[in-house]
């Protein structure tokens, strides 16, 4: 017992110290977003701004290329909402299909799905770009959102694991009562797998919100730019070194992500632990 009492503070100093080191860069950026641009690197070693410069946020909000940052945020939200709806809905259908239906080729398609889970996206980058060009989908959100409506392997896998925990007797009872497969899906299974759908929705939100490659390739007019593109444009015009506004908008872009993280922490942790979803 005595040994543990000595160990205890050392443990917390060690693990707490590491936590502070981990968080320090984020804290530095948040506080630097309240510093005058010319002071950001002059006073890089002190955390607290002096004086507090609130104007960075107003200046950053004015955006780049004549478009307010509000436009980028709205564009991002449209993509995120449409893509997430498509991804969660279609993935739940496919997951139910794999979990509760026997059909010829079940193993084959399941294997293919697990393979696509590990397929490097770069392999299809060029041909997809060519296909979307030919379809005249460029400079629209279609190349970014439409593929999400065909099931996302990670989410399928996540929901599949969840459906497997639902007792099969439930299906049998429903079938005896004359319930068809589709009714079984939306009346019984769908309400029960809501937690895993929430997890999928959270990750879909993160991935679409942070996505840079899609917008870089497919959105050409600044009026359609997303938050990631807006930040990139800030960086490209960095020669004027307006660090303050750039940090301010970076912090703003992380705010929804952080909010969701703190509200839905349990779902996120469960999602990662059960399926190996990557943040």
């Amino acid at each position: 017992m005595a040994k543990n009492k000595i160990k205890w503070p050392i443990y917390h100093i060690l693990i707490g110290g590491l936590a502070i080191i981990m968080l320090y860069p984020i804290l530095w950026m948040v506080l630097s977003s309240f510093k005058e641009s010319r002071l950001v690197f002059v006073t890089a070693q002190t955390l607290l701004p002096h004086p507090w410069e609130w104007g960075n946020y107003a200046k950053g909000w004015e955006g780049v290329a004549g478009y307010s940052f509000g436009v980028f945020i709205k564009n991002s939200f449209v993509i995120v909402i449409v893509a997430t709806f498509g991804a969660v809905f279609s993935s739940s259908l496919v997951a139910f299909g794999f979990a509760r239906n026997k059909f010829i080729g079940h193993g084959l398609w399941f294997g293919i799905m697990m393979m696509t889970l590990m397929l490097p996206a770069d392999v299809v980058l060029v041909p997809q770009y060519i296909i979307y060009t030919k379809l005249n989908w460029l400079d629209s959100i279609r190349p970014i959102v439409i593929p999400q409506f065909f099931g996302v392997p990670f989410f399928i896998f996540l929901m599949l694991q969840f459906i497997r925990t639902i007792p099969a007797e439930l299906d049998e009872a429903a079938t005896i009562d004359g319930c068809g497969k589709f009714r079984l899906y939306y009346k019984i299974i769908l309400p029960l797998i809501r937690p895993s759908m929430a997890t999928a929705a959270i990750f879909s939100f993160y991935w679409r919100w942070e996505d840079l490659l899609g917008p870089v390739l497919y959105l050409n007019s600044p009026s359609k730019y997303t938050v990631s593109m807006g930040l990139k444009m800030f960086l490209d015009s960095e020669s004027v070194s307006n660090w303050g506004p750039m940090f301010a908008m970076s912090v703003l872009s992380l705010t929804p992500v952080m909010l969701i993280f703190f509200i839905f922490q349990k779902q996120i942790v469960d999602g990662i632990s059960t399926s190996g979803l990557k943040g």
Binding site: M22, L23, I26, M29, Y206, W207, W209, E210, L212, V227, S228, L231, K232, L235, S250, V251, S253, L254, V257, M258, F261, I268, V269, I272, K278, G279
Partner: peptide, 11 residues
Amino acid sequence: YLPSIIGGSVA
């Protein structure tokens, strides 16, 4: 875990 969640972002 927080850095993993925000790590892929441009910010």
